[in-house]
Amino acid sequence: MVRFLIRRIIGGAIVVLVVTLAVFVLFGPVLRMQSDISPARLYAGKNPTPEQIQRVSELLGLDKPYYEQYLITMRRLVVGPSDEEKARLCPGSTPDECDAIVGRFGSSFAEQVSVDRLIWDAFPVTLSLTVLSAIIWLLISIPLGIFSAMRPRSLLDRSSTVFVLIGQSLPVYYLGLLALYFLAYEFEVFPPSGYVPISDPIGWLYHLILPATVLALQFAAIYVRITRSQMLDQMGEDYVRTARAKGASEKRTVVRHAFRNAMLPIVTMFGLDLGLLLGGAILIEVTFGLQGIGWLTVQAAKRLDVPTTAGIVLFSAIIIVIANIIVDLVNAALDPRIRLE
């Protein structure tokens, strides 16, 4: 088990390393090839003179060879910005002020703030939205999927098929706009936008419930379908027949035997979806004005804020790698064939 974990962590670290390399190449050397949007030019502000660009290049270290730039970037990412960098990038500030401006992921071009700070401000919003949404979609889809599988072609099964179709074919922003229009403007049941930190749980829930539900509906549709098909597969397995032959009740057969096995691929999918969403649910965050990672991504892209965009890509990659490792661990805990391999 420990070896299994170590192997997974090493594998994940390699993936992250590859991503850093890709991000560096894409946002550094590749960008530079198109001189009008080179990082230095972007940083230097509107209509810079060549001398200004030159100064910025030196300031950001863009005049150094690529490998050196990459090593500096990696060093900063792993151990944090060095004193020398701090001194260079925020001359005359106190250490605290400088921490807010220079971070592991670099500094934003658009604001006098570090990318770390931007991400850490946005992340709780995305995390809240994702977790609440995930709870809602699991609560809807798992029971619905199980019951549809137990009674195929029943009224419930047919209704759930309709639900799946609607959920999968309605774009989330359209559903979001409908919900906003009816529930926030026409009837004013929910607030139209904004985020309240979880320190005020009721306000938090009140502000998040609408976007989380809209997001959840789309995922619920997918999860109903996969739960149903997994359960149908498992219910046809020989060991389920064995459980029945032992005299196990239908509930016991379904919950203790069939669902436990059906869960394995669902857990895998769930972990990956969570990882993906934590990297930003762009459409829903923009629709509901939630300033999460997705919203930040859009902002950074609009303002050609290269370090922020690169930081988010890297951050999302790390989240997805972590999600993958957790999925593997949960699967190993659930499935002895993986654990004892």
């Binding site: 060991y239 027949r241 032959a245 096995n261």
Partner: peptide
């Protein structure tokens, strides 16, 4: 009680 043809699939794999 009953026993079945395929012992490889007749027992619950995760229990």
């Amino acid at each position: 009680a009953m026993i079945f043809q395929d012992p490889m699939t007749s027992l619950d794999p995760v229990i």
